[in-house]
């Protein structure tokens, strides 16, 4: 716990999280305003849900940038040196701390999107309003998608240790890999991070996957990458 608290302090004493919070909120607000107002009347539940959801790309980048900054500024080694713990444990704490801060960013982003979007969408008639259960389900999906995206980005950052490489890898994992997989097996796309995100953020309609199944698939990707990153850190030099 000491390590996670220390890593959270690290994240909160630089401006990276603040800038990403501002940018992420701005993008979410822009998305909901553009989709709700510029798309005409949204009179179906699916359309309204899509307007409120959004691809948490910035949160993926936040995870990558936050973790790679440790290597870019060579601040990873001092924590290992003073704590007396192995680099893998410190890396795991760093990923955990990034998820904690990422959860805050995801809640903030989703909160801003819903606070602005729900009243706008309520004025779109005819068509049913989103029920409280639907709103809670979508909000949970968005927060979960955002938080797990932070972990995916952080794990890629830990694995690659290079900011640009990690961001590019994030884009490849989310957007390029599904297209390649689709060429082999279309249904397999649903199990990719992108496919799972689409379900969680209501970016796709009529998916055969349930919200819990998609959450599980994305969590498996994120945790798998994180475990890989921690194991890699244990076997690499820090100097």
């Amino acid at each position: 716990m000491t390590l996670i608290i220390g890593e959270v302090r690290k994240l909160l004493t630089v401006r990276t999280a603040l800038w990403f919070a501002l940018a992420s909120v701005a993008l979410a607000v822009l998305n909901v305003v553009l989709v709700s107002l510029a798309s005409g009347t949204l009179d179906e539940i699916g359309e309204k849900q899509e307007a409120l959801g959004g691809m948490p790309l910035l949160l993926l980048f936040f995870g990558a940038v936050a973790v790679t900054a440790e290597y870019r500024h060579r601040t990873a080694a001092p924590a290992v040196l003073v704590s007396g713990r192995d680099p893998g444990a410190v890396a795991a704490a760093r990923l955990g701390a990034t998820v904690v801060v990422g959860l805050g960013l995801a809640v903030l982003t989703t909160g801003a999107s819903f606070a602005l979007g729900v009243p706008i969408l309520a004025s779109h008639h005819p068509g049913p309003d989103l029920s409280t259960a639907q709103l809670i389900s979508l909000a949970s999906g968005c927060v979960l998608a955002g938080t797990l995206s932070v972990l995916v980005g952080a794990a890629l950052g830990g694995l690659l240790r290079n900011q640009i490489a990690a961001v590019v890898a994030g884009i490849v994992v989310y957007f390029v890999a599904p297209s390649l997989i689709a060429m082999i097996n279309t249904s397999a796309v649903d199990y990719t991070p992108f496919g799972s995100l689409q379900v969680l953020t209501a970016g796709v309609h009529g998916s055969t996957h349930s919200l819990p199944a998609s959450a599980l698939a994305l969590a498996a990707w994120a945790v798998g990458l994180a475990v890989f990153a921690v194991l890699a850190e244990r076997h690499r030099d820090l100097g």
Binding site: T2, G6, R9, T13, R74, A77, P78, V82, S83
Partner: peptide, 27 residues
């Protein structure tokens, strides 16, 4: 064991006090 590496190993956006407090927390 204490080691001074890479000039200081502190993030440029953090203050010296913040940097040392974080390390003290770890230790």
């Amino acid at each position: 064991l204490g080691m001074a590496i890479d000039s200081c190993g502190a993030h440029p956006g953090r203050s010296a006090r913040q940097h040392l407090r974080i390390l003290a927390g770890f230790a």
